[in-house]
Design a protein around this nucleic acid. Structure first.
Length: 868
DNA sequence: ACCTCCCGCCATGCT
DNA sequence: AGCATGGCGGGAGGT
């Protein structure tokens, strides 16, 4: 039904694969090519497999072949893991072997659980799609097909897809079908998740748990009550945890439709898990803590073992997928008690999307109000959080939502989902609006680029190796605008941290607030890349982290106790209590109060960003905070929808609406320029078009307002600058642009898509980054990414890559769209240079700014184990 | 012995 | 009823 169109696109694959594997090859290849240009060339090997087809294995083998061919990186990883043997061994070989071998042997050949691990499977899965798919192309994913190709049960695919869906890297189109979005929206999503996480006070929760642990160890002390409160608070009134799925705007509804189980779903768990990383200072989260928090939301104490165990199991599943995405890495945290498995965030640093964040914006009052309201709504729907409590969904809401969803579903899904289809077809969320021409052009360019990139990949790899060190970060881009700079810093740095990178990031962030200095509390410091040392305080408790690798050690982590505190700081509450630490920085002071208040510092950045400005208004802020933070909009469904994708739909529509309203003229201006005419036009056009759709969906409508509100201004300048930066995909750029305008996204986010860029603007993250030397490893990864713009590369952070490019590109050229476009497209070149420069800058900045912060915490040792 | 986590049963809910 | 999803936890491979 729905699929009709889709089928057309997809079908081939499926058919081929499913029914006749052999035959399909052709089609499959084609498809692949379309989807993943990168592979295309490489793909060749594939056919052979097919040829072999007779064997059941074929599909798998093909994949493997492809994978290996395509992404050496993957291979390497595997090897690292040790998987390599199996995997890399080409399937074909295996097959042959199998034939020859006796049963036992046969078994041996296949085996290993490792080979079957979700992580590996995920890598294979990811290898099939580009990090930054061309929207113009059909990026549909047929689950059955994939399952066959990967030779795994569908159940496994669901595990992967659910996690990817939580990151909005894919969205459900129809029954057996998903659309691949890649990392285009990843930063946005992460920003949103961060915001939500902050709202939910996960940082605090983490702190509490850690405290408890400590206390327990020693003795119990007071914290108890507090903790409970907190937790409870988080929990919805009903006691529901606040789980909700955070959605991106345009995309997700459908998926939602499916979800009855949504709440519990792996998706939600995945998002929450990610939130924990984004919110915690060290960015290291132990499974135990994560499980407790996830469970805890429901009932703190009840954890029965079985429940706990189950949760842990699920977390492993999620972690495996996230690891494959290079967002996290396994480490061990050594506490007094012993060492516990934990994961460290290795993904991009993100600044919360606040869409609205702050007030800085020049909106009209009305806009603001609107925004707020929307946020509030969202908040209610989604998480609870806010002030204190979270919002859980109220039953009434739930019902409402359901009804809405069902309606929505009918409408959307239907298949048609024409809308979707369109989207899908266009793909673009981003560019979407425009008519095809633009999209096509973009697509073509992209394709070309990709091809090039693929070719160059190898080169890139090499580069990567080299580049490693430089993180590029960000860069610096020159800040093109002074304005940007100004804004940016404030935004990002809320924590007190300073923005290391001022310009780049900053630009991004404009809205946020001013927090500033306050941040004090945390000490964040960043270390220059090299130095690294960052101190990262471990989160609360984390005791020692040992990185396996290397570096980390360097750091100063030792400070330990303090570290914990840091974390605590954020939380505020933490501070007071138990923690031995003591060191809390000033921030803590406040903290004590209650979570409610959150001192500025709550989690640092986030909060800071939000409120910051004046301490005075804290309360006010808090309230706002909730709203603000959520850049996303909420839908009744309880999903939080960030705008991301919206761009195509929502955003644009929104924009248009806004425009109509006339609220943000400035933005518009900006808008246009950067993107070059494209956007502007689009928006209007789209608007018209999309609108209707929106109407259809209430949710969307809601969003738009929000988004609008968000729009804030700040972005304007930033945006401009930013645009250039983002090299990524044109589409993404556009999207970002749009979003920014809308206010949904913070510039920073956009900018790099990867945020990270190095940036680290956010203190916490930064820390983590810095801290871990291993990061080096990690970083390298990142670096690599940075270095290599190439999308194709394996998944790992394509984003970062983009970032890199962005940085440099920079050029800021607002003007011509063409120019811009070029920059976008052109990924490759620049990286290097920019990188270096950026790095340099970065470092310099860091040093300057922070050089000192640090906070000691408790000991934290993290050991990363690559291995395992 | 513990850590991971694969496997697949079976509930759930849509079609 | 049938199928798509996906929660869940037994139990096995790894270390």
């Amino acid at each position: 039904m729905e699929n009709e169109k889709e089928n057309l696109f997809c079908e081939p694959h499926k058919r081929g694969l499913m029914k006749t594997p052999l035959k399909e090859s052709t089609t499959a290849n084609i498809v692949l090519a379309a989807i993943q240009p990168d592979f295309g060339p490489l793909t060749t090997p594939t056919k052979p497999k097919e040829g072999s087809q007779g064997e059941p294995w074929t599909p798998t083998a093909n994949l493997k072949m492809l994978i290996s061919a395509v992404s050496p990186e993957i291979r390497n990883r595997d090897q690292k893991r040790g998987l390599f043997d199996n995997r890399s061994g080409l399937p074909e070989a295996k097959d042959c072997i199998h034939e020859h071998l006796s049963g036992d042997e046969f078994e041996k050949s296949q085996p290993s659980r490792k080979e079957k691990s979700l992580g590996l499977l995920c890598h294979k899965f990811l290898a099939r799609y580009p990090n930054y798919p061309n929207p113009a192309v059909n990026n549909d994913i047929c689950l059955d097909e994939v399952a066959e190709e990967l030779n795994v049960e569908r159940r496994r695919i669901y595990d992967i897809v659910n996690v990817l869906e939580s990151l909005h890297m894919v969205s459900r189109l129809a029954k057996n079908r998903y659309t691949w979005h890649g990392r285009h929206n990843l930063n946005k999503t992460l920003g949103t998740l961060k915001s939500v996480g902050e709202e939910n006070k996960y940082a605090e929760q983490i702190m509490m748990i850690k405290k408890k642990e400590y206390e327990q160890e020693f003795d119990f002390i007071k914290s108890y009550g507090i903790e409970d409160h907190i937790i409870k608070s988080n929990t919805g009134p009903n006691g529901h945890p606040d789980m909700c799925f955070v959605e991106l705007p345009g995309v997700e509804f459908r998926a939602a439709s499916v979800n009855s189980r949504k709440d519990k779903s792996l998706r939600v768990m995945s998002q929450k898990f990610v939130m924990l990383f984004l919110v915690s200072t060290p960015q290291i989260v132990s499974l135990e803590v994560a499980a407790k928090i996830l469970i805890g939301e429901d009932h703190v104490e009840d954890l029965d073992k079985s429940k706990f165990k189950t949760k842990i199991r699920r977390l492993y599943d999620i972690a495996n997928v996230l690891s494959s995405l290079d967002l996290i890495k396994k480490v061990h945290v050594t506490e007094e008690r012993g060492r516990k498995p934990a994961f460290k965030w290795t993904g991009p640093e993100i600044s919360p999307n606040t869409s609205g964040s702050s007030p800085v914006i020049p909106f009209t009052p009305s806009d603001l109000e609107v925004r707020r309201s929307s946020k509030e709504n969202c908040a209610k729907n989604l998480f609870s959080t806010r002030g204190k409590p979270n919002f859980t969904r109220h039953p009434s809401l739930i019902k409402l939502v359901k009804s809405i969803e069902s309606d929505r579903r009918k409408i959307n899904s239907a298949p048609s989902s024409p809308i979707k289809t369109n989207k899908a077809a266009e793909s673009s969320q981003n560019s979407a609006p425009f008519p095809s021409k633009m999209a096509q052009l973009a697509a073509i360019c992209k394709m070309q680029l990709e091809e090039q990139s693929s070719e160059s990949r190898q080169k890139v790899k090499v580069q990567l190796a080299r580049s490693g060190p430089c993180k590029p970060v960000a860069p610096l881009d020159p800040p093109a605008n002074a304005e940007m700079e100004l804004t940016a810093p404030s935004l990002i740095q809320p924590l007190g941290v300073v923005p290391l990178i001022p310009s780049p990031l900053s630009s991004a962030v404009p809205l946020i607030l001013p927090q500033a200095p306050s941040g004090p509390s945390y000490a964040i410091y960043l270390q220059p890349a090299q130095a690294h040392q960052s101190v990262t305080p471990p989160q609360g408790l984390s005791p020692t982290v040992c990185t396996t690798h290397s570096s980390k050690a360097t750091g100063s982590k030792d400070s330990t106790d303090a570290t914990t505190e840091k974390a605590a700081n954020d939380t505020s509450k933490a501070s007071a209590s138990t923690r031995p630490g003591s060191l809390l920085p000033a921030p803590e002071r406040q903290g004590a109060k209650s979570r409610t208040r959150e001192p500025a510092g709550e989690r640092g950045s986030k909060r800071a960003s939000v409120l910051e400005d004046s301490g005075s208004k804290k309360k006010f802020k808090e309230d706002l905070k909730g709203l603000e933070n959520v850049s996303t909009t909420l839908f009744p469904s309880g999903y939080l929808i960030p705008l991301t994708q919206c761009s195509s739909l929502g955003a644009e529509s929104i924009l248009s609406s806004k425009e109509n309203s006339g609220a943000l003229s400035p933005n518009h201006r900006i808008y246009s320029s950067p993107i070059a005419g494209v956007i502007p036009v689009t928006s209007s056009e789209l608007t018209a078009v999309n609108f209707p759709s929106f109407h259809v969906t209430p949710l969307k409508l809601m969003v738009s307002p929000t988004s609008v509100a968000a729009v804030p201004v700040g972005n304007g300048p930033a945006l401009t600058s930013s645009h250039p930066v983002p090299i990524q995909n044109p589409s993404s750029a556009i999207v970002n642009f749009t979003l920014q305008h809308l206010g949904l996204i913070s510039p920073s986010v956009q900018m790099s898509a990867s945020p990270g860029p190095g940036i680290v603007p956010v203190s916490p993250r930064i820390e983590s980054v810095n801290v871990v030397p291993e990061n080096a490893g990690t970083q390298q990864g990142r670096a690599t990414n940075y270095d290599s713009p190439i999308p194709g590369q394996s998944q790992p952070n394509g984003q970062s890559v983009a970032v890199t490019g962005a940085q440099q590109p920079v050029p800021v050229t607002p003007k011509g769209s063409q120019l811009v476009a070029e920059s976008f497209f052109r990924t490759p070149g620049g990286p290097t240079k920019p990188t270096s420069s950026s790095c340099m800058d970065f470092e310099g900045v860091n040093k300057t700014s922070f050089g000192t912060l640090f906070v000691p915490q408790r000991k934290l040792e993290v050991s990363t184990e690559d291995v395992h």
